[in-house]
């Protein structure tokens, strides 16, 4: 097993990926990016970074697999239940006090658990039909998974249901899915009728719409600060004035170029409000 990769090798890898496929990993955070590459080497039993580069160069199908494994697809429903309570009790009521309908963007939605969390929350508030949701990710196979809404029973019970109970949901989480064969569940498809799933690369795709609420939680932690700063600017541009922006509980934008254009609404849950164009 290879236990370490030189930074120069990672640079070479990034260069080939950029030239050949126009994805730019140069400003991904080093430790996690290196770990993802090591993981690809291990899973596919590839002997060296050089061999990986050669494989990526000549095998476009393998590149898709690589992209899927490089991106971190670990997510849960209602992660940080206290944030979801804040959404239910303050943020969403606040938005609907001035809006008839709202647009939400889940940026870097991965396998879609957070999108379902949002739809369940909105359904319980009787507001699901008043919302249009865009769920995006760089990785198309994971978007297909998000759309499908098929998750393991184990995760549903061990993680998601526990979070839902801590949030104080008014149903049972199992009311929103049916068990299928092989230890999986299928989420109720009517929950995501108003969701558009589309491919979007935060590094290069840019602004595509304007939103009242953007959630991008624990996605930018895989980028370095230079890239985080660029993406924060893009999010700022994608928000209407007086709309909300939520990042992960241990992320911050206070050092970024757009910091002065936001106010902190909830410092524990990292809820920001855009107050300046």
């Amino acid at each position: 097993m290879i236990e370490d990769i030189e930074i120069s090798e990672l640079r070479n890898l990034c260069q080939i990926v950029k030239e050949k496929y126009n994805y730019d990993f140069n400003n991904y955070a080093m430790s996690s990016f290196k770990r993802r590459v090591l993981r690809v080497l291990e899973i596919h039993k590839i002997s060296s970074t050089l061999a990986l580069i050669e494989k990526i160069k000549y095998d476009a199908a393998f590149f898709k697999v690589f992209l899927n494994e490089i991106t971190v697809n670990v997510t849960e429903m209602f992660r940080d239940p206290s944030l979801w309570r804040d959404l239910r009790d303050k943020i969403l009521p606040n938005l609907f006090s001035t809006h008839e309908t709202i647009k939400i963007w889940h940026a870097g939605c991965s396998s879609g658990e957070e999108v379902y969390s949002m739809c369940i929350l909105l359904k319980e508030m009787g507001l699901l039909h008043k919302v249009k949701i865009y769920a995006t990710d760089i990785d198309e196979p994971i978007l297909a998974k998000a759309k499908e809404g098929k998750y393991t029973i184990k995760n549903m019970i061990d993680v998601n249901e526990k979070n839902y109970i801590r949030l104080g949901g008014i149903q049972k989480l199992s009311d929103y899915y049916t068990e299928t064969s092989g230890g999986f569940v299928k989420m109720n498809p009517s929950l995501v009728e108003n969701v558009v799933y589309r491919s979007h690369d935060l590094v290069k795709s840019g602004v595509f719409n304007k939103f009242d609420l953007i959630l991008c939680r624990n996605v930018l932690i895989y980028f370095n600060q230079q890239l985080q700063n660029d993406v924060f600017k893009m999010f700022h541009e994608s928000l209407f004035n007086y709309s909300y922006f939520i990042i992960g509980s241990k992320e911050t934008l206070i050092w970024s170029d757009v910091a002065s254009k936001f106010i902190i609404v909830n410092s524990e849950e990292k809820v920001f409000k855009k107050v300046k164009e």
């Binding site: 955070a29 430790s31 996690s32 993802r36 971190v72 670990v74 932690i221 895989y222 992960g248």
Partner: peptide
């Protein structure tokens, strides 16, 4: 590198 801490949900 660069004297920083990074977090991950991997």
């Amino acid at each position: 590198l660069g004297n920083k801490i990074a977090l991950s949900t991997e």
